[in-house]
Simulated scan of single mutants.
Amino acid sequence: MSDDQGNAQGGATGNSGSRRLPRISFEFFPPKTEEMERTLWATIKRLAPLEPSFVSVTYGAGGSTRERTHATIVRILKETRLTPAAHLTCVDASRADIDEVVARYHDAGVRHIVALRGDPASGMGGAYTAHPDGYQTSAELVASIKKRYPDIEVSVSAYPEKHPQSADFDADVDTLKAKVDAGATRAITQFFFDNDLYNRYVDRVRARGVDVPIVPGILPVQNFKQMSNVASRCGASVPSWLAEKFEGLDDDPETRKLIAAAVAAGQVQKLNKHGVDNFHFYTMNRADLVFAISHLLGFRANAAREAA
């Protein structure tokens, strides 16, 4: 979906008068088991009536979820009214292999790809080595997709705290600019908790002439310890004030949910008040926190339509 299309949030209307609602999108990961698949589809059914601009499905380290990602995307296309975006990485695959994946998506009706360099098969934080016959950078991948399929929209990643493997912020912004120059029309950020980090990052990229939407990636904290471990591997900082809010709640999941919803809603509402009109939620395949935060933003489920 283009940004112009995204300006109209058709079925999500609230009690906010004439104020235009922001655009929202959701990220899911492909399920590994039947139980996880049931959880995912219950989540999709719960969130679909909010009519997000798109929903993305991740691609595991080293392409480990290729077929499961494809199957999830195809099912979304067939069984829902949602617009799916397929994640795709350069890791451990030749250009021919990746081109085949893109062709399969295009044939299935996918018109949005989130193009990433990706994490190595050893996992996030491991050393990255490009495949000798593969795309050497995500910018190369973006350029190839746009050359072969001009009708596919391409989103890319962005890092308010710098990619952990970038030499410095200037090099990191140069990488983003190369991806945009190659044809990317949106950048979705790594999650962050300090809005000042995002605001400073946007100032940096705008100063370099990058004018595509920089969509903040929002992570409601389902599990503080797990989130902290992920943050340490991907270079995202965890403020001390956030740790204090979850202190002593290891065995109190209900209170953790309340705190998590309050924190994420506060972050999103502050960004929205400062003009940010596009948010991407890392759902972790759970609907409750994301639905609550969307409700606080003014979204109301379109009850007149089936969810899926």
Rank of each mutant, 00 (worst) to 15 (best):
residue 8 A to K: 10
residue 10 G to I: 11
residue 10 G to E: 15
residue 11 G to T: 06
residue 14 G to S: 07
residue 27 E to N: 04
residue 33 T to M: 13
residue 35 E to I: 06
residue 35 E to A: 13
residue 37 E to L: 06
residue 42 A to P: 00
residue 56 S to G: 03
residue 59 Y to C: 10
residue 66 R to L: 14
residue 69 T to W: 00
residue 77 L to H: 01
residue 78 K to R: 15
residue 82 L to V: 02
residue 84 P to C: 13
residue 91 V to T: 06
residue 99 D to M: 10
residue 100 E to T: 15
residue 106 H to M: 04
residue 108 A to S: 14
residue 114 V to T: 09
residue 122 S to M: 06
residue 123 G to H: 12
residue 125 G to I: 06
residue 132 P to H: 07
residue 134 G to T: 10
residue 134 G to D: 08
residue 139 A to W: 03
residue 140 E to L: 13
residue 149 Y to V: 09
residue 151 D to R: 02
residue 156 V to A: 07
residue 157 S to F: 01
residue 159 Y to G: 02
residue 168 D to T: 09
residue 173 V to K: 01
residue 175 T to W: 06
residue 190 Q to E: 05
residue 198 Y to M: 08
residue 200 R to V: 15
residue 202 V to Y: 00
residue 202 V to H: 02
residue 207 A to T: 10
residue 212 V to S: 01
residue 213 P to Q: 07
residue 218 I to L: 09
residue 224 F to Q: 06
residue 227 M to S: 05
residue 230 V to A: 01
residue 233 R to N: 14
residue 233 R to M: 15
residue 243 A to I: 01
residue 247 E to K: 10
residue 266 G to I: 01
residue 276 V to Y: 13
residue 278 N to F: 12
residue 289 L to A: 08
residue 293 I to N: 00
residue 295 H to R: 15
residue 306 E to L: 13
residue 306 E to V: 09
